[in-house]
Design a protein around this nucleic acid. Sequence first.
DNA 1: TAGATTGTTAATCGATTAACAATC
DNA 2: TAGATTGTTAATCGATTAACAATC
Lengths: 215, 215
Amino acid sequence: MNTLPHKTVERLSRYRRMLLRYQFMEKPYIFSRDLAAMLKINPVHVRRDLMLLGISGSHSSGYDVVELIGQITQKLECRSGKHACIIGFGHTGRAALEMFATDFTPVKIHAIFDSSLKSVSKTFYDIPCYSMEKIAEVIEEQKITLAVFTEADDNPEAMINLLIALGIKGILNLTPVQLQLPEDVYLEEFDMITSMIKLAYFSGKCPGAGRLKHD
Amino acid sequence: MNTLPHKTVERLSRYRRMLLRYQFMEKPYIFSRDLAAMLKINPVHVRRDLMLLGISGSHSSGYDVVELIGQITQKLECRSGKHACIIGFGHTGRAALEMFATDFTPVKIHAIFDSSLKSVSKTFYDIPCYSMEKIAEVIEEQKITLAVFTEADDNPEAMINLLIALGIKGILNLTPVQLQLPEDVYLEEFDMITSMIKLAYFSGKCPGAGRLKHD
DNA sequence: TAGATTGTTAATCGATTAACAATC
DNA sequence: TAGATTGTTAATCGATTAACAATC
């Protein structure tokens, strides 16, 4: 199958999560209209995305929920049955682990790496935490190809270069540090400060705007 | 000034951060080409974004770094001199606070709200943590209009409705819960699981793809 | 049939990039 | 002048939405 558009993959992930919850309700079928309403998007998106996957529904009853979950999972899973690790076990690393441990997700965390001795050699949600020295050994052994990067304190460049040398093919960067990656390493980023600046910029009015005087 | 495009605001935030670091170097001017290289984007983007802000550079020496920082900050600040709070002080809430405390940002956190008694009445990076019961009082008193939402445990709907009733105009949702918001409340979201699924989908090859046999 | 839904194409919209004149 | 850069318009690309035929 051809590569799906970025936005479609994003939505498929959200359909999947929503459908897994919906499954616990009585109804075995769902209309594009209802799934769209739950996600606050246009029903055409749902139908178009499912069309791209080759999934079809019925005019009278909509889409089969169980089949939908299976098909989406399978389509994403081919490429998401990959092993991931978390680099850095501060608040961000812990938040990430918690997220993976409590949400339905086909991507699994196989290792945590941290430089502080406090966490090393323990397990968290059954995931072992290793010292940074073990990184090469464990990534190779566990066939890890994805990394959640949460620690930019001491020499992030060196750490990233090591990850690349070890064959990591995708990095989720949760730090505000700008990473220099080769073409063939895929990068996802979340920059909280930039999100917050957008929030401030686009929400409501400027403080003071539209007022003539008084505080 | 007219409202800037979403992507431009995002990039301006990143220019600003990069320039604040660049400022510590000797050079007082910067070319669009160099700023773009640092951010791994097209130089035309830099020039176009600055054009939208009415900032102009010189053909021979580029843009004045100090002026650039001042102009960008001012343009974003008009709308970002807003007060924010963090809802929930688990790992995600702590990660958020840390980010705001250690990065240069015009948006300031004025309060943390948490339901566990362990953190309440203490301060973290000089920001006070209140119990959830104080939420109405503090949001009003501190004129808070933005919220970082990190806690979806008990009844997120009720919490969100309370925030809206209290006049919150922008929410950064860091939980995987789908929020139902009125039109006039701006929403930013980060869904880590979806980011990770994209990472898995778009990075490298499918495991096994392209190989004929052998593990 | 009438009403609602799916499946698909065409039109629109926003963002990116190519192209190039103007300037130093 | 020659070479490099800025500033700006036009072309391209991807994503969204409008429109509608086909189907139950």
